[in-house]
Design a protein around this nucleic acid. Structure first.
Lengths: 228, 228, 228, 228
DNA sequence: GATGAATGAGTTTTCATTCAT
DNA sequence: TATGAATGAAAACTCATTCAT
């Protein structure tokens, strides 16, 4: 998907003897990633300072460089983590499962399930969206490509779920190519717009109408045929 | 000498010497805005340097400050210009006109027209989208609000067009609130995602499928009822 | 006195034919000097900008350079003008005259007269003091030397007046070397302190007590012997 | 990741690694203050550059900003230091002590002591005077006010010393209000003038006569009554 | 391992002066 | 003659990264 390997478990320096604490490096990297996430969400990548991140992680800024290559790598880690969480939230495998068990019997149910997840995500972790779309996208071409890659991956996964469903026995009528396309691209269609709309908690009304509209859009597209 | 006389800018002498070449300031500001647009699209706001912009505009960096307050004002100018162009492209007034003349007789035609415009914009001026969504959104809360405001304005304009259409005599059936909501929010739904997808000219195929999906989505949503 | 010649009536460029307006250059230089005085008093030398001065003088900044060598020369001109006015206020020649006519018959009368003049000056033209002591003194060694030279000149002039008085027939008792020294250095003793004390019009009380103290100092020193 | 936990700077880890060398900050600030003092005396505040100061302090200019907020704070520090030293030199408390022990029995002795201190100061630390009067006064209204405040403080301290003396038993004759006023304002009267007169070591003769005159002035004012 | 100290490259901005018209 | 336009040198300041301890 993306050209950089996601996590790259690097041991920063060859160590001799028994490592004092085995997973320390990984733990530190995780803490730093979390800290960086917070700071990037707050201030944006460029305005964020490495020392802010170190402070938030509770370590010295020198220490930071023992576990991480620099500011840019922190952003990569954060984006990787966000991608991971995004996929976890969308959970295409679970989707396949639900389709298999018959819990999601019709295409429009798939789309609703997906939409619901996406909106919940936007509610519960708006920072993730901000990072993935607005913030990281503004840094580099390279990063923008990676994020495209992520949405591409989501697309592929959802597509696989839909394939599974088709195989499971959706009627030819139900399995409309246009509908499939829509469901597949749902995340990349909906999320960036939502990220841009994220304000404080103040403009719930506007957000609701946005959410509503998107819902209509989905339901309109998919439900239309089913419901008529 | 004595103590300061109040203001007394002397009697304004009759104009002599090099005439204050009229309109220069506006021309320079326009040139600078264009240069800044290019540079911001290329490098992003934060990485762009004022001297890059001046160089691109073909003037010294000192000169730049004669016409513009600084880097931030340049961004404001660029965003304003983009907003202006975006509205010009969507041309809601023209939409109203077309509805009045009967050239757009059905809601789905309105949405198609709108969609077509948006896609053409993304084709012809991808930088505009990049600025309006990814780049400027990453700079400031304030700027993010302005851009939300812009999309809000578009919403209002399209809404007005739809009102006109309704008044023009769409049947109650045609004038479905859900469809209206979708058409209204089309720009804010579609554009950010497209901006994020913008690569070089290389990934036309992917973009096409994106465009196609969105088209389906629209057509699905609106057409559904008309076609059934 | 100072190492630079005060006014240096320079015609900035050799002109051919009948000069259009004879004293123009001098008039312009005078206007510029006045404008520079105002601006320097307001903002201080370093913070003052040449274009402020040109604007205040009602001419373009390009024009300014036709009559004046640059910012630094403006300061020189201002200092020269201030020096001139300071000497005019103290008017040592008039002092000699008054002594000759018997209007000032006793040393303490000379000192009172002088003190009165200095205080009036501080009241009526505080900017002059600010320039001569605080502002110009902070710019250069050279300028500080010139101002020392100015006070030296005042010293010499007052000294000459006192010589005249002595010649006129002050008794040996009256003509006390210590008193002469005090009177001579009165300006350089009193003025810098006053300049530093100059605030707005608000702290009149404090200034009054300052003035009073200085008066006491003078009167105490000189009057003491005469009055007892 | 998740949404930002409030603050949670982790549990403050046990101190390890390079110890935050205690007192370094204060030492650096002191070094920088000293360097800034030298540079400001040499070049004046406005002409002095931050990198000059850093170089003189033997550190990089980036380092400077670790310990000091910027150029303006350096000036504040320098002025504070000067004020402190000025008060230490005048040592009003010691004055009170000397009066109590009878070492200074008469008002004129107080004034002589004070004068002697001031002249010694001008000899030994002329830069201090330059800063406090000429240089800092030219920067800001605010700074001018602070310096007025300093002289006001000195005034108050000397005044307290004189009160103590009066209480100690100066006769009503000795305790003349005019004389007290003079002694009190001695510093603010004398120092600015001296600062302006400060050249290199070349003009000792002139400075001596200045000092002499001021001495005469004092002695004349105060002694007059005692000696007659 | 951990850390804070150090730093210079790079950024934005100001403004005295020159010059084409 | 008069002028505003142009400009580059210089300044203050920030911060990611390195390194001695």
């Amino acid at each position: 998907m993306s050209r950089r390997e996601p996590v790259k478990t690097r041991t920063p320096r060859p160590r001799r003897g028994r490592p004092r604490s085995a997973g320390l490096a990984e733990r530190r990297r995780a803490e730093l990633t979390a800290a960086a996430f917070d700071v990037f969400v707050d201030q944006g990548y460029e305005r964020a300072s490495v020392s802010d991140i170190a402070r938030r992680a509770g370590i010295g800024q020198g220490t930071l460089y023992r576990y991480v290559d620099g500011k840019r790598e922190l952003l990569d880690l954060v984006v990787d983590k966000c991608a991971e969480e995004l996929i976890a939230v969308i959970a295409p495998d679970e989707l396949v499962g639900l389709i298999r068990t018959g819990d999601l019997a019709l295409p429009y149910q798939v789309s609703e399930r997906l939409g619901e997840r996406l909106f919940r995500l936007a509610d519960e972790n708006p920072g993730l969206l901000k990072i993935l779309t607005v913030q990281a996208g503004a840094v580099d071409e390279e990063l923008r490509y990676r994020i495209q890659g992520l949405f591409h991956t989501l697309d592929a996964m959802v597509s696989k779920a839909l394939d599974a469903a088709a195989y499971q026995g959706w009627s030819g009528d139900d399995d409309d190519p246009a509908a499939r396309l829509v469901v597949r691209l749902l995340p990349s269609l909906v999320l960036p717009g939502m990220a841009l709309s994220l304000r404080g908690d103040t403009d719930l009304k506007r957000r609701e109408s946005y959410v509503l509209a998107t819902g209509q859009l989905l339901r309109g597209g998919i439900l239309a045929r089913e419901l008529q």
